[in-house]
């Protein structure tokens, strides 16, 4: 094995990127047309575009989750917060379709900027609640956020009156369906948020602080880092990401479904973060890794749909693929395999 390869494979992003590349290549071989991109209706069209578009909410939530996990936290309420945000936005924009002499017009309850601000405000409040429970009340993060995970959907249903809220306001649909320069608008939202977060982490001391808190919260506080404030802030950021994801999801399907929106999102986000090489024990994290992790998960889902696997065994196939991916990513497993290979080589 050359030194160059060793150096390359030592990079955090190497294995996640390799996994994603393998998945896409395998799809390209066994599933002709999967990688094809076309120009249709003034925008790019193809499975790859779908994957990016569909993965957008998961990417955002994974970015938030990465930072929470980096300070030894966990937020399992993201799915519920997504549902709350989606429902609040849908409710505030309103679902009145007035039919007047055969002419249908969409009527909003509140202006769209107010609705978006309202939804994100509620999401931030959810994050503050989580942060306070963890930092001030000293609860274990998984339990503290479990409260909102369970109660949040109830809250969302309360807002929506237990119904799916349909949105009849075309300008709102742009967020989740629109195209800018031939690419999905969500891609730009994700890129902007990723860039901002990256700058905040690397051009200020914030990244260093987060790593310090993750490695040793007590020592970092003694050293003068405002660990509690930063931790609360990160929970709020994570919830905000879930809130933006909620806007995208509700805009994409033009409705808000309090029961099903963002279901099991927390697990997918944790999986994405792990696939990206972030340690669940805190301290070491990779934002880019989480983005790649989220893309891997969505590629798996899209693969299952386009290969034509019978729906009854969907879950099993997905689990097996995730299992294989996790094995590939495990440094320990790779060492073991290398050990076997070396031994068989010697014997031969």
């Amino acid at each position: 094995m050359s030194a160059r390869f060793k150096q390359l494979s030592g990079h955090t992003l190497f294995w996640p990127l390799l996994t994603l590349a393998l998945l896409l290549v395998a799809n390209g071989i066994f599933n002709p047309g999967f990688l094809a991109l076309q120009w249709r209706e003034g925008h790019l069209y193809g499975n790859l575009i779908d994957i990016v578009n569909r993965a957008a909410p998961l990417i955002l939530v994974s970015i938030g989750m990465t930072l929470v996990i980096a300070v030894r936290g966990l937020d399992i309420s993201v799915g519920a917060v997504l549902a709350i945000s989606a429902t609040v936005a849908a409710w505030m924009i309103g679902g009145a379709l007035v039919v007047d002499h055969g002419v249908t017009t969409a009527v909003t309850r509140l202006p769209m900027p107010v609705a978006i601000a309202g939804a994100l405000g509620v999401a931030l409040a959810c994050g503050l609640w989580n942060g306070l429970l963890v930092v001030r009340a000293g609860m274990q993060p998984i339990i503290a956020t479990l409260i909102l995970m369970v109660a949040g959907r109830g809250l969302a249903q309360l807002i929506g009156g237990g119904q799916i809220l349909t949105i009849y306001y075309p300008p709102y649909f742009y967020l989740g369906n629109g195209f800018l320069l031939g690419l999905p608008f969500t891609l730009f939202v994700v890129a902007a948020i990723y860039a901002l977060t990256h700058v905040a982490l690397n051009r200020t001391a914030l990244g260093l602080f987060i790593r310090a808190i993750g490695v040793n919260p007590v020592a970092s506080r003694v050293a003068g880092i405002r660990a509690r404030l930063i931790t609360i802030g990160l929970y709020m950021f994570c919830a905000l990401m879930a809130g933006v994801a909620g806007l995208i999801v509700s805009s994409n399907v033009k409705s808000a479904d309090a029961n099903n929106a963002g279901q099991l999102l927390e697990l997918d986000a944790i999986l994405a973060v792990t696939l990206g090489g972030t340690l669940l024990t805190g301290g070491r994290f990779s934002l880019a890794g989480s983005v790649v992790g989220a893309l891997i998960i969505q590629t798996l889902t899209s693969t299952i749909y386009s290969v034509g696997i019978p729906p009854q065994v969907n879950m099993v196939v997905k689990a097996m693929l995730v299992f294989a991916v996790m094995l590939l990513q495990s440094a320990e497993f790779r060492t073991t395999v290398r050990g076997w290979l070396v031994r068989t080589e010697r014997r031969a």
């Binding site: 599933n31 047309g33 999967f34 193809g46 499975n47 779908d50 569909r54 799916i164 999801v249 994409n252 399907v253 033009k254 409705s255 479904d257 099903n260 929106a261 889902t301 899209s302 749909y305 386009s306 034509g308 019978p310 729906p311 969907n314």
Partner: peptide
Amino acid sequence: IRSQSGDFTRAKGKEVMEAFLKA
């Protein structure tokens, strides 16, 4: 030619149909 579960929801129905159309 294709049959897949959309879980009775709009979001899944859309997602699965997108994949059908590509395939």
